[in-house]
C-alpha cells in the first residue's frame, strides 16, 4: 500500500476529473431518462463544443470561461435541431435505428472535423493554465478546481430546474407517462427536443470547463463516450444523483488504476466496472429517478 502522499493527490485528481465526467454523463442520462434513447453521438458533440471553445479563443481571444455565455446556448440550439430534424424521423419505432443514426452522426462529425481541422491536437493557453491550488497537501491545477465547482453548480442548477420550473415538470411528466402528459396538453415533441437540447447544452458547459486543462482533436470524444456510458449505467439510467456519484467513482477508479497498473492498462478498471454492472445490476446503483 503506497502511503498517502501518493494516494491523496491521485484520489483528488480522480475526483476533479470525475466531476467533469459526471457533467458529460448528466446530459446523456437526461436524454436517456426522457427519450429512452442512447445518444451515441455524445462524444462527437462534446468534440464540437471543444472546437467551438478553441476557435473562440484563437480568433476572438475569448477566455474559455467567457465562452460559457456563448457555447452552451449554441450547443442547445444544435441539440434541439438535431432531435427535431433528424433523430425523431429516424426511429421507425425501433431503438436500434436511433442508435444507428447517432452512430452515423458521430462518424460524420468526427471525420468532418478531421477533414477541416486535421488530426492535430490543439490546446488553449491561459494565464491560469498551470497555476495550482494547495488542497490539504496536494497540488491541484486551478482549471480542475474550477471545473469541479462548475460541474457541481451545473448539476444543482439542473436539479432545481427539473424540480421547480414548469418545463422541468413537463419533462418529468413526459419521462414518466408520455400519453398522460400528452392528454393534459403537454407538447411531447417539444419536450423531447428541449430535453435533447438541454443535454447537449450541458455538454457545451462541460466543453468550456474542460478546455483549459485539456485538449481537442477530432477523436477526443472517443475516450469520453464509453466513460460517460459507464457512468450512466453505473449510476442508473436516468438518475441525476447516480450520474454524479458514478462520475466520481469512475474518476477515482481511473486515477488509481493508472497509479497501480500504468496508464494503458489502468483504463481496464473502467470497462470492468461497466461490464460487471451491465451483467449483474443493469438498473444501476440507484435505479431510476423519475
Amino acid at each position: 500500500m503506497p502511503d498517502m502522499t501518493i494516494l491523496w493527490p491521485a484520489i483528488l485528481n480522480g475526483v476533479t476529473t470525475g466531476a467533469l465526467y459526471a457533467l458529460i454523463a448528466l446530459g446523456l442520462t437526461l436524454i436517456y431518462g426522457v427519450l429512452h434513447i442512447i445518444n451515441f453521438a455524445h462524444g462527437a458533440l462534446l468534440m464540437v463544443g471543444l472546437y467551438a471553445v478553441y476557435f473562440l479563443w484563437r480568433f476572438l481571444g475569448l477566455d474559455p470561461y467567457v465562452s460559457l455565455l456563448i457555447v452552451p446556448p449554441l450547443m442547445f440550439a444544435l441539440g434541439y435541431g438535431l432531435q427535431r430534424g433528424l433523430i425523431t424521423r429516424a426511429g421507425h419505432g425501433r431503438d436500434e435505428n436511433i442508435l444507428l443514426v447517432t452512430l452515423g452522426l458521430s462518424i460524420i462529425l468526427e471525420n468532418l472535423a478531421l477533414m477541416a481541422f486535421s488530426s492535430d491536437t490543439q490546446t488553449v493557453d491561459t494565464a491560469y493554465g498551470f497555476s495550482t491550488l494547495d488542497v490539504l497537501g496536494a497540488f491541484v491545477p486551478v482549471p480542475k478546481v474550477v471545473a469541479f465547482g462548475g460541474a457541481v453548480a451545473t448539476a444543482l442548477a439542473l436539479w432545481a430546474f427539473m424540480a421547480r420550473t414548469d418545463l422541468g415538470r413537463a419533462i418529468r411528466a413526459v419521462a414518466k407517462e408520455k400519453k398522460g402528459a400528452q392528454l393534459v396538453g403537454i407538447d411531447v415533441n417539444h419536450v423531447y427536443a428541449m430535453s435533447f437540447g438541454i443535454g447537449i447544452g450541458v455538454l457545451g458547459i462541460a466543453a468550456c470547463l474542460l478546455m483549459p486543462s485539456y485538449y481537442v482533436n477530432p477523436s477526443v470524444g472517443h475516450g469520453f463516450v464509453l466513460i460517460a456510458f459507464t457512468i450512466v449505467v453505473l449510476g442508473g439510467m436516468g438518475s441525476f444523483v447516480g450520474a454524479l456519484i458514478g462520475g466520481v467513482i469512475i474518476g477515482v477508479v481511473e486515477a488509481l488504476g493508472g497509479l497501480f497498473l500504468g496508464a494503458s492498462l489502468g483504463q481496464i478498471g473502467i470497462f470492468a466496472i461497466f461490464i460487471l454492472i451491465l451483467l449483474f445490476r443493469p438498473q444501476g446503483l440507484l435505479g431510476r429517478l423519475q
Binding site: 452515423g104 462518424i107 468526427e110 468532418l112 478531421l114 477533414m115
Partner: peptide
C-alpha cells in the same frame, strides 16, 4: 476522413 463522412452519411 472523406470516405468515413460518406459512410456515415450513407448510414
Amino acid at each position: 476522413g472523406a470516405n468515413m463522412v460518406i459512410y456515415g452519411t450513407v448510414l
